[in-house]
Design a protein around this nucleic acid. Structure first.
Lengths: 295, 295
DNA sequence: AACTTGTTTTTTATGGACAAAGAACTAGGG
DNA sequence: CCCTAGTTCTTTGTCCATAAAAAACAAGTT
């Protein structure tokens, strides 16, 4: 049976919205709420129905009124608002990290289904989607095989990454001066500077900043294949940082400095400088990654 | 229920093998047949069981003997040997070509399932795998959306293709002289020359030759992401050639000439020539493709 | 021991059931 | 008419059943 996570998420969202409203006030129409909650009207009506039952809202013949502000305890747990497929995704990544799997290891759908408490269909659907990252491969009539995050994988990944990012960085620098990318870049520059001064305490925050910066650059390529490829890079970095925390502060300190050079170069719009700083940073990132990968 | 296409395919394969054997002769062991047929021993045994029932083989206590050579009519129809997922794939591509779908069109799982005569699970699994090509996209809680093979798509595709192939071509030229790629290239060169003399009659055969040539070049990159990307290119060309047959002979004549130049350049191992001929051919291929794509 | 075939257990492929969510119709009211 | 809310119809997400296929286990022969 389909889970009602959409309803629960919409329920929580409406609760959050209503707690900012005054009791006695009328509530927006179903159509407006539908936009606000990002769900279908059917779902909105279901939520409103339950809120009416609980005496939080009251349905008049013309519209609804807020009776009492909702209490935080009325909301559903966050975990209940995650669809099965999202849960599978999270659990699979954890599973991948937990035991150290070797390249060539078989992945058993039934086994994962039991471990994750979902049906095999859910697992299979996830694996099919996940296979686009080339970390797993389907063997005809006999399940999946973990390809492993090997040194070769990392090298091939970076070969493509360098090609893509250099091209994107050039495209970025060549954007018209009123392109929105420039303001975004300047604000990222500020964030980098802010983080730099507090790096010893806040070094965990770099990961997110790193992703936003590189995504901004890659987006300038305006090429869906280049942009999509960053999903894989992002996944790998996430994965990698999970199991190699050594020197994290130091690595991030260096990376911030490299980013700042790179950002300066982009702001200068000088293609040669852009290429040099971009390449320098990527080589350094590659070295870091390779250092923590097996043979 | 799972279909028994594996069994039927193995059955036909064993039949083909047995028709080359002499009656009265012993038959290989189950383990050897398993290798030969590319199926599990369970399936091999099932096939042998049926063949025994039909009096084609006879099981002794020690091994099996061929009684009579099988007749072609003993075999299953080819269509029966295709698994559901393969059928879905074929039918989906036909469906995509048949009516001209516009970018943004919704794809209805239930509808496709009915049209193709399979369950929605089969459709869904296919769509999940197919989504890696970026021609369709999933909209949360509301099916799939056809992104369309637009001009932008073609341009972005070729941008990446050029990057990848130039790099691959360089890598190809830099291979050691005893790399197996060289003999493969020479034999492709011969095939091109042979096709060139008969191009007016055999122009349909170019498509296959084209794919084999470019795959050979791309393989030299020894990069799984580059190699995989060719799957998409291959799909698009297949797709494209289905609905634009105009000037096919002429286009292919030109492409063969370009390939021959490109091959010469590779054989010369001169990086500059390689790059020039590769780029020239790709630009020409791009122009051809774009000419047949909408706005 | 290395291979054979026979048997049992596990896993995958495919279809189908069914509640949840979305979409498309209604009919009233300004 | 546009927008409201009520109703019905369609499609999707999720699980489960079951035969096919694979894998593991067992025992016999040379």
């Amino acid at each position: 049976m389909k889970s009602d996570t959409v309803y629960k998420k919409a329920f929580n969202a409406l609760l959050a919205y209503l707690s900012e409203q005054q009791p006695g006030n009328p509530i927006e129409s179903e159509n407006l709420l539908k936009q606000r909650l990002g769900a279908s009207r059917t779902t909105v009506r279901k939520v409103l129905g339950v809120l009416a039952e609980r005496g939080i809202v009251k349905a008049g013949p013309v519209g609804r009124t807020l009776i009492r502000p909702p209490h935080p305890s009325d909301a559903f747990e966050r975990a209940e608002t995650l669809s099965t497929s999202v849960q599978v995704e999270k659990k699979f990544m954890e599973w991948l990290l937990r035991a150290d799997r070797k390249p060539g290891d078989a992945i058993n759908e039934l086994d994962l289904a039991r471990q994750f408490g979902v049906s095999t269909s859910g697992i299979r659907e996830f694996l099919n989607r996940f296979s686009r990252f080339r970390l797993i491969e389907r063997r005809a009539n006999s399940g999946w095989c973990f390809m492993g995050f090997t040194k070769d994988f990392a090298l091939e990944l970076f070969e493509v990454r360098e090609m893509f990012e250099i091209r994107s960085a050039r495209a970025f620098a060549a954007q018209s001066p009123d392109a929105p990318g420039w303001t975004a870049l300047k604000s990222l520059q500020k964030e980098h500077l802010a983080l730099q001064t507090q790096i010893t305490q806040r070094f965990h925050d770099f990961s997110d900043l790193d992703e936003r910066f590189h995504r901004l650059v890659n987006d300038a390529s305006r090429n869906r294949f280049i942009v999509d490829f960053y999903d894989l890079i992002s996944l790998i970095f996430h994965y990698h940082y999970q199991w190699n925390k050594s020197d994290e502060a130091e690595r991030n300190r260096i990376a911030i400095a490299e980013h700042l050079d790179y950002i300066d170069a982009l702001l200068s719009r000088d293609p040669a400088r852009v290429e040099a700083t971009c390449l320098f940073h990527l080589k350094s990132a590659r070295k870091t990654l390779l250092a923590s990968v097996g043979p």
